[in-house]
Amino acid sequence: MNLLARYAESIFWMARYMERAENLARILDVHESFSRDTRGATNWFSIVQLNADEKDFFSRHDRPTAEAVIHYYMFDAQNSNSLLSMLRIARENARALRPWISTEMWTQINVFHNKLLEMSVKDVATQNLSKVCTWIKEECQTHTGITEGTFYRDQGWYFYQMGKYIERADQTTRLLDIKYHTLLPSPADVGSTLDASQWTTVLRSTAGYHAFRRVYPRGMSPTTVAGFMLYNEGFPRSVVMCVRQIDGVLTRMRSRYEMRGGSNAMERVDELLAALLSRPIEAVLRDGLHQYLDWVQLQLSGITTEIAQAFFGVDAPLAVQSQSQ
């Protein structure tokens, strides 16, 4: 059966926003331990910096207090990067997709969104932040599970996976970037207890700590952690793993449905994968991790553009498929 271009686009973005929400919940959850200064206070400002939201944030808040930042990233409907906004967008897409997705998928997103809508920053007094983030993460995982178990496997399923893996790859690069962007390690800190615990937190926020330990039973260095998160072939949130998934999904979809479009997207995915596999982590760190992550993000956004052009009908209508009858 044909898939409406609009549905494909909505599926792609629904998947992305659910993935994005999960990652933001992960980031907020670990943030406290992430960015404590030497006196143990949490520097909430770094999270604003991380998202490059300074201008928007300060247009409505004087100071980056815990309450202000939490509200801004959880409940602020005007902030398009807040969890509430993400859920709203995911739900709007799901609403447009109700004829296509399973009732269970829709109902879960709808109820999740409505619950979030009823909460306020008072419900998330700082000591409960972790609990609320865990709940959000679990709701996102419930979505993933319901989708896996109920979403009919036709074209839509491929677009869902493409959206999810592109977003996940992107989020992993952002998470890695926090460590460098907000905590530029001073030479004195490298190798210190504080440094190690921060790297542990990065791994824990992606549920990768134990897997990492299995691969590297002894020691933990920026090189091994960054390398693990970028290139590990078994870690489900590593960038390489995600890009391989995108590659496979796109290839299988195009062949199964004999799709003419998408060759440019295919090329860009192959290029990105080749580039990722050709640079040792040492070289990346030497030349600057931040610049490298930026470049990866740019490639992912380029792939999204190509997918949109090939399948979402952003160009003039495609050629007539066949005359009827």
Binding site: N2, L4, A5, R6, G261, G313, V320, Q321, S324
Partner: peptide, 22 residues
């Protein structure tokens, strides 16, 4: 929705991921 459809040569088509479908 209306934006999903297009008329060419007096025939109606849906815009799909694989081009126009009658």
């Amino acid at each position: 929705e209306g934006r999903d459809l297009v008329v060419e040569n007096d025939r109606v088509y849906m815009k799909t991921t694989n081009g126009l479908a009658p």
